[in-house]
Design a protein around this nucleic acid. Structure first.
Length: 291
DNA sequence: GTCCAGGTGGTCA
DNA sequence: TGACCACATGGA
């Protein structure tokens, strides 16, 4: 049976840190749809998790080529090439004021997910609650995605292509609970499905990519930064939402978060770890408020 | 009933 | 640029 080990990961923290909305927690495990496959992730000890594939016949051994392909998909998705323990240490060393937040966040990894899924997800996230974002996304999958597999009566779906999303009406998006964002989703999916954006955009520098994304309806600086981080895997990003604003104010007395301040934070203050620092701020402050 | 949510668009200065 | 308000909707 196929198995993939991810080291230095805490699945619960990763799931719970506002970066992924497609995981389905079930009996101490997480079902994770990626592309046209469903995976199952389980924490095997404090530091490590194992991942299995569910929709390949367990009896038939995977062909070598398929196995290599899945290895690659999971390596990229879980960002296994990066040494998180060292990165967390580095942040604490340079920014002692963040020590508590870093220790609280250790085990959290930054996932690299499907780009169009991130576009839709974070467009929905604007002025919205996490449970409602999840709910709307699962309705979109169910309506426009393909069935991957059914387990214990629960059907899992792939994330729909931009082409099929562009065919949904504004009313449909509203029906799924998108609220006033429905009109933006309608317009932007139509525009993107007619635009072979993906390959060209991948070559852009992060700040150019952010600018391109901001030209789309329903995408502003915060959402664009989330898309380049969790979709394009750009670590020179720094999404500023209500929680990160609180952290910037609390630790550094930064009240204004305009273009200049953002540039300073990414280029000077947190440099190559800005994305992870931001995620630590978000996760630790949000969780602190929930206790 | 009121407040808030991983903010953005439109308008106006 | 930046400040202001409206925006759907559901959970606390």
């Amino acid at each position: 049976m196929y198995e993939f080990i991810v080291n230095d990961i805490d699945l619960k923290k990763t799931y719970d840190s506002g970066q992924v909305f497609s995981w389905y927690p079930h009996n101490d495990e997480y079902y994770i749809p990626i592309g046209s496959r469903l995976y199952k992730a389980k924490q095997i000890n404090t530091n490590d998790a194992k991942i299995n594939v569910l929709n390949e016949s367990i009896k038939n051994k995977l062909k070598k080529q398929e196995k290599n392909e899945i290895d690659l998909v999971l390596s990229e998705y879980f960002d296994v090439g990066r040494d998180y323990p060292s990165l967390y240490d580095e942040i604490t060393k340079k920014h002692n004021e963040l020590k508590e937040g870093v220790d609280f966040s250790r085990g959290m990894r930054l996932l690299k997910q499907d780009i169009s899924e991130m576009i839709i997800t974070f467009m929905l996230s604007a002025n919205n609650h996490i449970p409602r974002i999840r709910n709307t996304l699962s309705k979109i999958r169910e309506f426009a995605g393909n069935t991957i597999i059914e387990i214990d009566g629960i059907k899992f779906y792939s994330f729909p292509s931009l082409d099929s999303l562009s065919k949904l009406s504004e009313e449909k998006y509203k029906e799924f609970g998108a609220g006033y964002r429905a009109a933006y989703l309608c317009e932007t999916t139509k525009l993107l499905s007619n635009l072979s954006y993906d390959d060209k955009w991948k070559k852009l520098k992060t700040q150019e990519l952010v600018q391109k994304l901001c030209e789309l309806k329903g995408i502003g600086p915060k959402v664009a930064h989330c898309i380049v981080l969790f979709g394009y895997g750009r670590w020179d990003s720094f999404p500023i939402d209500t929680w990160v604003k609180k952290a910037l104010s609390k630790y550094y007395g930064i009240e204004k978060t305009g273009k200049k301040e953002l540039e300073y934070l990414i280029e000077k203050k947190f440099a190559k770890n800005s994305a992870l620092v931001q995620q630590v701020m978000f996760y630790s402050l949000k969780k602190e408020s929930e206790r």
